[in-house]
């Protein structure tokens, strides 16, 4: 476009991107490649040089009962948290959107867990769910029910963690859905009214749900990726216990890598984790994206 300035412009472009590019190479690209390389080695901290062992780490993962439990637990956790927090977020957004008053107030209430210190709130939940002195079981006792030991029984621990995960994430989804709802043209809802969509459900099916499509897809992907990354609550509350009933991918990776210092093995778990995240992103962009955009 500007003939004279193009050389200077290119120079400026390189200079301005150079710090970011350098940081990117050193702090993101190189370590990520190193992590991929580590996954094919038997590296343990302090043992140099590591040996290349090909797919041995992955073979071991496949046989490792602890890892399998961790993998299945993560799937179960994601399987609960993602759908519940997506539907819950949508429900809350619709409820608040139609409320006559108190929209800002309720939005703040449900969003508060998103900005709260997860570790501290996990501790608060631990107190709430304490088998003997926790208010939850105390309330159940009033109803004549003996509550379970929520976080220390292998039957309920994953469910309890999932409940905390939903509590933490639903407000985030709600805010995204509220933004999506305000983007729906008012005229379309009015057209649905005039066209004879008498009940709220008819209007939801005819206008709200189809027009929320892109938002929903985004929220679903985000919720899946966020819940695959569950770590804080496990690290604070259960440390994977009891008896590995709450082992999840990132926590297993953490203990293998930073407690047992088996970095190669830990890197292999990281790759499994990365593969899951990438698969979810691919699902969004390649498969579902086409079905929710009209235009």
């Amino acid at each position: 476009m500007r003939e004279g300035g193009s050389r200077g412009e290119a120079l400026a472009g390189w200079l301005l991107t150079a710090p970011a590019a350098l940081a990117f190479l050193l702090l993101l690209l190189a370590p990520t490649l190193a992590a991929i390389a580590l996954a094919f080695s038997d590296y343990e901290l302090g043992q140099w040089p590591p040996a290349w062992i090909g797919l041995d780490n992955f073979r071991e993962l496949w046989m490792d009962r602890g890892f399998r439990t961790s993998f299945v637990n993560t799937l179960v956790y994601v399987g609960i948290v993602a759908p519940v927090s997506v539907l819950g977020g949508l429900g809350l957004a619709l409820l608040i959107e139609g409320a006559a008053r108190g929209r800002t107030f309720f939005r703040a209430v449900f969003f508060l867990p998103v900005v709260s210190l997860t570790v501290a709130m996990a501790a608060a939940w631990q107190y709430l769910l304490h088998p003997t002195i926790g208010p939850v079981n105390a309330a159940l006792r009033l109803l004549g029910i003996t509550g379970p030991a929520w976080l220390s029984s292998s039957d309920t621990v994953l469910l309890s963690l999932a409940a905390i995960g939903v509590w933490e994430g639903v407000g985030f989804n709600m805010v995204l859905f509220m933004a999506g709802l305000t983007a729906i043209p008012r005229e379309l809802r009015e057209a649905a009214l005039v066209d004879g969509a008498q009940r709220g459900w008819d209007r939801f099916r005819l206008v709200t749900w189809p027009l929320l499509g892109p938002t929903t897809l985004f929220v679903v992907t985000i919720s899946l990726v966020r819940s695959v990354r569950v770590f804080d609550t496990v690290a604070v509350l259960t440390r994977g216990g009891p008896n590995k009933a709450s082992e999840v991918l990132l926590y297993t990776m953490y203990t293998e890598g930073f407690t047992f210092l088996r970095l190669g093995y830990s890197a292999a778990i990281t790759l499994v984790f990365l593969a899951i995240v990438l698969a979810l992103m691919l699902l969004q962009t390649r498969v579902l994206d086409r079905r929710v955009h009209y235009g």
């Binding site: 412009e9 290119a10 190193a34 992590a35 580590l38 890598g257 830990s266 995240v277």
Partner: peptide, 30 residues
């Protein structure tokens, strides 16, 4: 700005968006 390699840089950014911060953690720790 228009400069040679801009598409590469942007491609790297898009790729970087896909990688969670947990992945480079091990080598960074080392």
């Amino acid at each position: 700005l228009r400069f040679v390699g801009r598409e590469w840089v942007f491609g790297a950014v898009m790729l970087g968006l896909l990688v969670p911060a947990h992945v480079p953690a091990l080598p960074l720790y080392v």
